[in-house]
Design a protein around this nucleic acid. Structure first.
Lengths: 229, 229
DNA sequence: GTATGTTTCAAACAACCGTTTGACTGAATC
DNA sequence: GATTCAGTCAAACGGTTGTTTGAAACATAC
């Protein structure tokens, strides 16, 4: 491809991105040092600052590399559904499948992150790092907005506030499931579930969140009791 | 109480625990340094190593201080329900309320952690630190086991594997909601929901997870398609 | 008052952090 | 062939990390 013949070792910048991505997923941002990254990537220590400028900028690059394809895929997946529906509301099931299929597509494509991508994705909203706090909303704004309004249209009888809560719960379950943060694995010593097979997760995950989202609205009278005690 | 009259400042060890707890919730384990802790606790730097031995041991102490009361409360809350039911299966709604009430009790008692407790609780399964990986399962084993079998008894028609998945999703949503990790706040700039009022969260959270847990079982035929692609 | 054991304190420890420097390499440009 | 410039490299930068030290300060017991 580059006329140099044979595989020729990968670009230094992407080798750094790959190493940083894997280490960040495994250890988190703060616990991952420059020396760990450069050692794994088999590049010189100074290479990170040369190619990316700083550690913060590197991690911003790690995220945007994976997130951009996801948001594009997920949005265009919803586009297809909505044009086919010709203005009619979609089913919540179809909406959730649209998002899940986009994530699964990338999860099964090693060139776009593969299995490690979904775990990185889940890190994005768990990590509290300021670098992500300002750059991520811009990335997710369109994605979340589109899916939120599609869900609102599918569930017109649900109060908007309650729906926003439910979407929050749903995405929490989704991202945590994909993160491999198998909570049961943390609690019990030998769980039967294996959180590493994305498509297996989705099989059980979609019905769960769909049921949660489409549950009957809570009685309006229960709201005030929030302030008791 | 100690004959010295008046309030008399709090014990050094607990002042350290309080400071470490707050900082750990806010910044995470790795990003919280000894000097941040001792400065906030207004104690000498060496006091942490003197009273706890190491930073790792300190954080283990931070968690066990809060987790032990929760598991006790949650288990005995389930005990009361089960003895009242005289062997009959409980409703999933009652089970989830039992757990949530235990968490809310502690969340509203400043002496047992208050609002910060629930966020600490959620940190326990997000943080990947090895110290927690080995100590937490022992703490949670009874709690999860009891609630899992109670749920299994309430939903005998659900396959055990699928039920374990659903419990995983449910607890993910619960802990993330309490963590204040409002995923929508990260994605959209101005969400209407406020994730800091535990009882308000519970009002919306319980119906969501109950609906997810009690959803119809997935068709047995859909299982094999997991291996496609 | 002296002795004993516990707690606090300022100071220093080696190790690691992210970043910068300046010399060196190799290929492209004139 | 000299020049240019993106890229790599070993070495060092100042600063922070968790931890240790040995001397003070303290309360309690004899």
């Amino acid at each position: 491809m580059n006329g140099m013949g044979e595989v020729r070792q990968i670009d230094t910048a992407t080798r750094i991105l790959d190493a940083a991505e894997a280490l960040f997923v495994e250890h988190g941002f703060e616990a991952t040092s420059m020396r760990m990254i450069t050692q794994r990537a088999e590049v010189n220590l100074a290479a990170v600052n040369y190619h990316f400028g700083s550690k913060d900028a590197l991690f911003q690059g790690v995220f945007t590399r994976r997130l951009t394809p996801l948001t594009q895929l997920a949005v265009q997946s919803l586009d297809k559904l909505e044009t086919a529906a010709k203005g009619e509301p979609l089913s919540v099931d179809a909406i959730m499948h649209a998002f899940m299929d986009a994530a699964l597509d990338i999860a099964h494509d090693p060139k776009r992150g593969g299995v490690i991508f979904v775990r990185l994705l889940s890190r994005t909203f768990i990590e509290a790092h300021p670098v992500l706090r300002e750059s991520l909303p811009r990335h997710y704004e369109e994605l979340v907005g589109r899916y939120a309004s599609a869900t609102a249209k599918a569930l017109p009888h649900i109060d908007p506030v309650e729906l926003q809560w439910r979407l929050n719960f749903a995405f929490s379950a989704i991202f945590n499931a994909f993160a491999g943060n198998n909570i049961l694995r943390l609690f019990v010593s030998d769980p039967v579930v294996n959180a590493r097979a994305p498509r297996l997760i989705a099989t059980y995950l979609v019905p769960f969140v769909v049921a949660g989202l489409t549950a009957p609205a809570i009685a309006a009278g229960t709201s005030p009791d929030v302030n008791r005690a």
